[in-house]
Amino acid sequence: MLDDRARMEAAKKEKVEQILAEFQLQEEDLKKVMRRMQKEMDRGLRLETHEEASVKMLPTYVRSTPEGSEVGDFLSLDLGGTNFRVMLVKVGEGEEGQWSVKTKHQMYSIPEDAMTGTAEMLFDYISECISDFLDKHQMKHKKLPLGFTFSFPVRHEDIDKGILLNWTKGFKASGAEGNNVVGLLRDAIKRRGDFEMDVVAMVNDTVATMISCYYEDHQCEVGMIVGTGCNACYMEEMQNVELVEGDEGRMCVNTEWGAFGDSGELDEFLLEYDRLVDESSANPGQQLYEKLIGGKYMGELVRLVLLRLVDENLLFHGEASEQLRTRGAFETRFVSQVESDTGDRKQIYNILSTLGLRPSTTDCDIVRRACESVSTRAAHMCSAGLAGVINRMRESRSEDVMRITVGVDGSVYKLHPSFKERFHASVRRLTPSCEITFIESEEGSGRGAALVSAVACKKACMLGQ
């Protein structure tokens, strides 16, 4: 009897593995994704193909990295998701002549009506938060230079001027797309009239992360975010950046690689679950690469896999709870928690219980395998993109072996128990001629924006502006 049951459990697990095998990517698959990513990057950089390229390769006008001589107080704003952060950054000489960066910050959550109302409502709310922060720190009387981390696709015309191309991540505030974001912020500050600010720089969160990590390690020339969304930036040779005049030196390019796949480059790798996630998203047909990796989508992918296993009578005796059938019910943090389970399955059992399920031991094991399959594919897909960037940098610099540091931020990278190990191992397999160091950014977005502002202020002083 026991043997029969054991055989049935083994057969069930084997069927589960057959279904989950769809998520496995072979090294040849990853090399294919990497080569296609490089081709799209090239198209994004070139003037004649930029418009139709899915990977936009947006110039950021960040050319210099901090040298350690900029000092002063800077205000930093960070808008990239449902939370908005205001930070005071003091850049100065530390002990023994070292450079020191001290920060104080406060988080504000953005109400739904500000995210989806008008641009005026959104930026009025942001300036209200700045006003509140300055009151708390008794700094209303000071006109501070301000660095703005704005983590949406922007076409820069200068370091302090950028046109919002399109909202992502659930934002829909009308009247912002096609307009200068810094102008919208300046107008809102003017409307309030109770404080003055000098907006000197606007950067993407990947750029802010790279600059913040450069402060720790001067070989950091790539910034990457794996959180709600997924994106990367890197220092490109100016001669390859056709959208900006000049051939000397390097400029940081914001790849906006989340949109890779929007022209069909990933079609052969998309599964039924991916198509369902895409169809029910706020932007169907867009940001397809990001939807395979980002935390906004990972939990939902797992939920759809679990429903398939229920329908195949391989999980929960073929019956799903009402909660499990509800879109968004299986949160991405559950994926991390399930994979963090120590082996007694308590954590998995508790999560499934909150979803109205009474799982068996085998159910718990199957749910864990589903989570591992989805998150491992995410790590491997992400590795193909980064390997594409790094191999490109090595080739354009004609280096036999390139040493490089990548600064990384984002909740999936930082909080998932195995993502970074799987990701690092896969990147290294795909970049055999590179020695890569990964560092995690601390308060990256805010500190990085302030350091970019410090560079901009120093330049302005040198130019006598």
Rank of each mutant, 00 (worst) to 15 (best):
G97R: 13
S263M: 06
R63T: 14
H317N: 05
E17P: 14
Q287C: 15
K13D: 07
M298E: 08
S100H: 08
A460E: 09
P145V: 14
G81A: 03
M381D: 01
D113N: 07
P284K: 13
V182K: 06
G193I: 06
S353Y: 07
A449F: 00
I126V: 11
F316M: 08
A320H: 08
Q18F: 14
K31Q: 08
T362G: 08
V71G: 15
G261L: 02
A188L: 11
S418M: 13
E290L: 00
K104G: 07
G464D: 10
Y413E: 03
L20W: 09
E242K: 01
N231Q: 00
D194M: 05
H424R: 10
I225C: 00
V455Y: 15
G264V: 06
R85A: 01
S453K: 02
E9V: 11
E443H: 03
V338P: 06
D73Q: 15
G178N: 05
S100N: 11
G258R: 00
G356M: 10
S418L: 14
K12L: 12
I436H: 05
S411F: 03
E265V: 12
D187L: 07
V71C: 15
A449L: 02
G388W: 00
G68F: 05
C371I: 06
T65E: 06
A201S: 00
G410P: 02
T431Y: 10
A454Q: 05
E322M: 14
W99P: 10
R250D: 15
V89G: 01
V338H: 05
A384K: 02
K414N: 11
I351K: 13
M210C: 09
D278F: 04
Y61Q: 00
E48N: 13
R327F: 09
A370N: 00
E442N: 15
Y108A: 03
C252L: 11
A176R: 01
G72R: 05
E9C: 14
K12Y: 11
H380E: 12
Q286D: 15
L134S: 02
S336T: 15
L146V: 03
I225Y: 05
R429D: 10
C230W: 00
M115D: 03
K296A: 10
E440V: 13
R191S: 09
I366P: 03
P59D: 04
Y413L: 02
E331D: 13
A379I: 07
P66S: 14
G72S: 05
E67Y: 12
Q287F: 02
E312W: 08
K190L: 06
P59S: 01
E331L: 11
L270Q: 12
N240A: 15
D73T: 15
P59N: 05
L324G: 05
T65H: 15
H50E: 02
K458V: 13
E440H: 15
Y289L: 01
D217Y: 08
L276T: 14
S127T: 02
R394V: 06
E395T: 14
K143N: 09
R63C: 13
V401C: 10
I189D: 03
D247P: 10
V16T: 11
C382Q: 02
V305P: 12
D247W: 08
M202W: 01
